[in-house]
Write a protein that binds this DNA or RNA. Structure first.
Lengths: 339, 339
DNA sequence: TCTGATCATGAAAACGCTTACATTAAAATT
DNA sequence: AATTTTAATGTAAGCGTTTTCATGATCAGA
């Protein structure tokens, strides 16, 4: 059996309470005793059992992170930023990747809940609050602890949302393209994302406000979750055989946009002379492709920073706004030429 | 206070032991009682406290994943694959991102250890066993539970390694390039990676075996951890101003290779006619850039699959090989033309 | 009908910590 | 020197489960 606090207390000739005080730095321990205990702990490589601690302590300073797929570029970055912020503030994090299955997600939510976390952050706009079932889970969880949403929003007194205004951002991006003289745009839409719908609406609004006729609407739903770039390229090709009936591509994320680039290059057309392309997320992919990708920056860093700030305040009992909205910004690179 | 097993037992008119049996499916509960208890649990939304369980249970069927930076493309994918495999086998995972600081890493290792995990997987070849300090941690941990290494190896009876033979793979890749008539190669080397050194050695051996003179050796160390593609491009530019004195680039990972592509394009040279490029990892980036990147596939999926297989067997008390080595394979795409 | 086996259940100890409370010793105040 | 205050430490009661062991009920076989 592993070494316990009792063993340490015996070897140090003190009580377990004193050892506990040394470990938790609660004060009221004489320097001499403290040193003696610390030395013994060091010597025996004693590590307190986290579960036993969990029973005693009120808070374990832990927050759960729930995401669908941590290997997704955007999610991975979000998770990393959140973890760094949490760590910097003395919190641990517990990451669960649920995939897209609702039941698995419910199980994981319960799993996290059972671990006495101080809060749960729902990461990535994927799927959040997109179904009734999902709503119910969130409500139940929110009855117990504050729930933080990254890039989604939900109305509940104990749910806090931090998001980028994807509707407005996409509206801006699409408007820029239209006003630069490109009315016929292919819109690539990933239906798996919660904010995807908002972006689509923003795009459609831009079309409407600029009086683009119905006949020029060209929206492609791509709903595979993990298809590679080749898949995307093939998909677009299949849907638009022959010469593409558009001069612009706007995608709801950078991966799709890169698919658009490769597709365009396959058809032999030039970017941006023949076809302009805009992505979304301003991820590292924008710098990887040739030409480099114009993309909407949805300020992930600002979002995560604000989210953790809100969380810490909420946990400290402060009253905080239920919803904080940032706005995105189009970063122009070489797949567009709007001037 | 949250609802406990005791509350449930009262409402169901049974003892806590019976409720526990229902929850853990240990049998020896009458169908009627089982249903009654299950209903009450459902009704009150009872979730057992994980910490209390942790005290009672021998194993929590949990394994810790330790990585430096989960947002790194390769690591993210490895983590995802491992988590999926673990989940499929009824294990939970606990992810910790330590960054590159040794002390932080030690703390995290202890943290994981304190959670009674059944094993720890050290993910990503980054930094593993690269320092004496690191070695010591691993040894200490291995005294308690089996330690699994992904893409690293370490000699200890309780440490199991699953890896790709990066030395041989890089040797092959470099040989291919040299034998296609390109003796002057720039090698881009990320020193933050443990396997980086092996790859470098493989590269150098290929040079030696093909009688490439010392004067043609051109190795660039790039040791920033999180620099973007632009950084890499600028770095290469800075180190090789004017016309590049080489006709091939081999990089120790795909991100560096993409930096090489962008650099080449900036100088106005053609790929692969003027300069051939090979990356490593065969990540999704290979499909994102133009031209698409030739890269060494180090069969991450096979690695993770094998690693979990070994782990499960070890936990089941089986004798397993200490070290399993796969070999990588050069996947030719459009940045090379070796025929 | 009786006996031993099997099944369902409960009582209570154990898991390894934290912490409220009690106690003692030392220091500060009068 | 007596008294009060403060600091250091110990005692023991939880925390919410699991699990061993004991107990009683049911059942099959004679």
């Amino acid at each position: 059996m592993a070494i316990t606090i009792y063993d340490i207390s015996q070897k140090a000739g003190v009580s377990t309470a004193t050892v506990s005080r040394v470990i938790n730095g609660g004060g009221n321990v004489s320097p001499a005793t403290c040193k003696k205990v610390t030395d013994i702990i060091e010597e025996y490589g004693y590590i307190p059992n986290a579960y036993a601690r969990g029973m005693g302590l009120r808070s374990l300073k832990t927050v759960g992170l729930l995401c669908a797929d941590s290997s997704d570029l955007y999610t991975a970055r979000a998770v990393y930023l959140l973890e760094q912020e949490l760590q910097a503030n003395g919190y641990e994090s517990l990451l669960c990747c649920t995939g897209f299955n609702q039941d698995v997600r419910k199980n994981y939510l319960n799993l996290i809940l059972s671990k006495k976390v101080d809060s749960i952050i729902l990461v990535g706009s994927h799927f959040i609050a997109s179904t009734e079932l999902e709503n119910e889970y969130i409500r139940e969880a929110a009855d117990q602890i504050p729930i933080m949403l990254l890039n989604a929003s939900y109305s509940h007194p104990n749910v806090y949302s931090t998001l980028c205004d994807d509707y407005a951002s996409m509206y801006e991006a699409a408007s820029s393209m239209i006003q630069s003289g490109i009315p016929d745009i292919l819109y690539l839409y990933n239906s798996r994302s919660y904010s995807g719908l908002k972006k689509l609406k923003g795009f459609e609004k831009a079309l409407a406000d600029n009086h683009i006729p119905e006949s020029m609407r060209n929206i492609l739903y791509y709903d595979k979750s993990a298809g590679g770039i080749e898949d995307i390229t093939a998909f677009i090709q299949e849907m638009t055989d022959g010469r593409p009936p558009f001069h612009g591509i706007i995608a709801s994320d950078d991966v799709l946009a890169v698919g658009g680039i490769k597709y365009t290059q396959k058809t032999g057309l030039r970017i941006p002379e023949d076809i302009s392309i805009i992505g979304y997320n301003n991820s590292m992919l924008t710098a990887c492709c040739t030409p480099s990708l114009t993309s909407v920056d949805n300020c992930l860093e600002a979002l995560t920073h604000q989210l953790i700030h809100t969380l810490l305040q909420v946990l400290a009992g402060e009253q905080m706004p239920q919803k904080v909205v940032f706005s995105g910004k189009l970063i122009e690179r070489d797949t567009t030429c709007f001037h």
